[in-house]
Simulated assay, not measured.
Amino acid sequence: MNIFGIKSKICFDKGSIEYLNTIKNKRVCIVTDPFMLKSGAADKITNIFKANKVEYEIFSEIRPDPPVETVSAGVNKMRTFKPDVIVALGGGSSIDATKSIILFTVKILNASGDNYNKPLFIAIPTTSGTGSEVTSFSVITMGTTKFPLSDDEIVPDIAIVDADFVKTVPPQITADTAMDVLTHAIEAYVSTNNSDYTDALCEKVVKLVFEYLLKAYKDGNDMVAREKLHNASCMAGMAFTNANLGINHSIAHTIGANFHIPHGRSNAIILPYIIKYNANLESIKESETAKKYAELSKILGLPSSSSKEGVNSLIYAIKILMKETNIPMSLKEANVDKNELFNKIQSMANTALKDNCTVTNPRMPNEEELIRLFKELYGE
């Protein structure tokens, strides 16, 4: 039996931040990063709470690829303040960290007999990429290893998808995060857990990214493009929280942990190679996965008279997007040291093999195949 569910209430369109005016007579903790305070983005939230005389505190120690130490500090903040509402403001790092903070705080306090109810969880994304505002996934870092967590209890209750929060995102981050969205959609589309419901979302997301990424990249003030990409990010999150992902993300997790390449950029670099691997065009029997990739090409109006042509058209179109947005085509172009990569390649392949995303990849790799993929990703 398949189950499709969307837990989060989604507030979208310009000005949807006004939803926060419904929060009254509550203790609120805002979880964010230092840049959100410095840039004034957090003021949009605090001004509303001040006007409504809402008691709030701010935890602003979030940093990229949130380490377990940051989560621990957030848990200590929560145990002291015990908020009724938590508002996560930021990109995937802020929202992911908040998920882990909530999960561990509730478990710790309840284990100590404190009987603390999970706070209302509101997520406000400031990048159009992770879709974390509607997913049950969180990724935290310990050393050079990223640990994906999955628990229905950490899905935000409210997602505020307000494009006003992304209109100042720089072009390169716009491109990196949008390519993350595209990867989410394509991986969920061919996942072994895909369904008619997730497929419909993925098809729409792919169309939106191809139509609006370059517009938002070239003109950050194009609010129609910004809004469409922001919606696409959220929709992709709905799809993959139900269908899961694949080895594109498994590989990206370990590359990010070891070489600190932004997650969306890592996914973009990897994507053409994974489509080729999963399609397995060299196989005597045409794969269902190749047919699905070709279906995306048809939806985009790309040449697809056969599955092979459709797969190659999709790969070519993705590479054009990458070239137009100055995304590296290989790990070499991303300035990864070849010797360091090859010294770590076996352990990285093993880590990717054990990643939770690998289990729903349409073609199950072995360690040797992953090592070969890492070598191809380096480029020459």
Rank of each mutant, 00 (worst) to 15 (best):
M1N: 04
N2Y: 13
G5H: 13
K9D: 12
F12G: 03
F12T: 11
N21W: 15
T22L: 09
K26D: 00
R27V: 01
V31I: 15
G40M: 04
D43S: 11
N52V: 01
V54Q: 01
E57I: 01
R63F: 07
D65G: 06
P66C: 10
P67I: 05
E69P: 04
V71Q: 08
S72N: 13
S72I: 09
A73P: 00
V75G: 02
K82R: 15
G90L: 11
G92H: 11
S93F: 12
I95D: 15
D96W: 11
A97N: 11
T98E: 08
L103G: 01
T105V: 03
L109I: 01
N110A: 13
N110Q: 12
K118I: 03
K118H: 04
G129S: 02
V134R: 11
S136K: 15
F137E: 10
S138A: 15
K146V: 10
D151V: 08
E153A: 12
E153L: 11
P156D: 11
D157R: 06
I160E: 06
V161Q: 08
D162N: 08
V169M: 08
P171N: 08
P171Y: 03
T174A: 05
V181C: 00
I186V: 15
E187C: 12
A188M: 09
Y189W: 10
V190E: 04
D196M: 13
V206I: 15
A216Y: 00
A216F: 00
G237F: 02
F240R: 11
N242F: 11
A243L: 05
N248L: 10
T254W: 01
H260K: 14
I261T: 09
I261R: 09
G264C: 04
R265A: 06
N267K: 05
L271G: 07
Y277A: 07
L281K: 06
S283V: 03
I284T: 13
K291T: 14
K292E: 08
E295I: 08
E295V: 05
K298C: 14
G301N: 06
S304L: 05
S305A: 14
S305C: 08
S307W: 05
Y316K: 15
I318F: 14
L321P: 00
P328H: 12
K332D: 07
K332A: 10
N335R: 14
N339F: 02
E340N: 09
F342V: 02
N343P: 00
Q346M: 06
S347V: 08
M348H: 06
N350R: 11
N356Y: 05
P362V: 07
P362F: 05
E369S: 01
I371G: 05
R372W: 03
L373R: 01
